[in-house]
């Protein structure tokens, strides 16, 4: 298990470094000087030189890369070109908002998705199962931004139940919760259908296994057979997917945050890209990649713990 953990973590570090190198390559391969693009056509050469220096673009490329990794390793992600604030401070300010949004979206999607998937299996091959199937496919096919716009229209504009934009007032949990509902709903909707399908398929496969027959042979109620004996095994692939799901949800959070004018990593990074604020872009990408890799690695290790068979193979 320990060897496996070390291997997985080493792999995560290698991926992280590769991603950052790719980011650097992109900055340098995109045509045009970032400083002139950022400052516009009327900027003086002195101003451009100053900005280039602040962006760290005046040094040789390899030196820049080395410099970036060295300071990143100590937790220093550089400074905002415009405000001169440390990049890490900004990330830490915005990230909780995004994380809460992602976790809330995934949380309700997961709960409902598993419930719908398990329901479909308990009632398999009935009308209810087929209706759930249609509903799931429907939910998968609707793009999150469409849901977001309609959610705003209905619940914020017409019914005025919930705020349309923002993340709520600082220090007022109720207003923050109310501000979370619509974005989390919009972000999670597509996943509900997806998870319901996944859980249903995975559960149906498990339901054909011998141990399910054993449980039935002892007269366990079907609901208990499905929920305890089936779901316990069927949920394992879902966890792996959830880690990937959180990554993908965090990236869709970018435009959900934009639609809902919600401060977060999404708004931070779109703003930084528009202003060619490279240190912020780089720092944010590094941070999010590291976070994503952390989640995926943690999920793999969790699965190894949850599935005694995997745990045992790894112990050998």
């Amino acid at each position: 298990m320990l060897r496996y953990a070390v291997k997985r973590i080493a792999l995560a570090v290698v991926i992280l470094i590769t991603v950052m190198l790719a980011m650097y390559a992109m900055v340098f391969l995109v045509p045009g000087d970032p400083a002139s693009l950022a400052l516009g056509p009327r900027a003086t050469p002195e101003l451009k030189a100053l900005l280039r220096e602040r962006m760290g673009l005046d040094e040789p490329v390899l030196w820049q890369v080395w410099h970036f990794f060295r300071s990143a390793a100590t937790g220093d992600l550089g400074y905002d070109v415009w405000s001169k604030r440390p990049v890490l401070d900004q990330i830490l300010e915005f990230f909780p908002n995004t994380l809460i949004l992602g976790v809330a979206a995934l949380g309700w999607a997961l709960t409902l998705g598993i419930a719908l998937g398990a329901t479909a299996v308990v009632w398999r091959d009935t009308v209810a199962d087929r209706l759930l199937g249609i509903l799931s496919v429907g939910l998968i096919s609707v793009p999150a931004f469409v849901v977001a716009i309609y959610a705003i229209l209905i619940f914020a504009v017409w019914l005025r139940w919930l705020p349309a934009i923002g993340a709520g007032n600082p220090g007022d949990p109720l207003s923050q919760l109310r501000a979370l509902v619509l974005p989390a709903f919009a972000l999670g909707v597509g996943w509900v259908g997806y998870l319901a399908r996944l859980v249903r398929a995975s559960l149906l496969e498990v339901m054909g296994e011998n141990h399910i027959r054993t449980a039935r042979a002892f007269g366990l109620p079907e609901s208990r057979v499905v929920l305890r004996y089936g779901l316990r095994v069927a949920i394992i692939p879902t966890i792996a997917l959830m880690a990937v799901g959180l990554g993908s949800i965090l990236s869709s959070a970018v435009f959900v945050e934009t639609v809902f004018g919600r401060p977060g990593i999404g708004t931070l990074i779109t703003g930084a890209v528009q202003k060619r604020n490279y240190p912020v872009v780089m720092g944010t990408v590094l941070f999010m990649t590291a976070f994503y890799l952390f989640i995926v690695t943690a999920a793999d290790l969790l699965i190894a713990r949850l599935d005694p068979r995997v745990r045992d193979v790894l112990r050998r």
Binding site: Y229, L306, P308
Partner: peptide, 10 residues
């Protein structure tokens, strides 16, 4: 088959 007769995760 005693190998598969029991749930592997309980």
């Amino acid at each position: 088959d005693p190998m598969t007769a029991f749930s592997p995760v309980l």
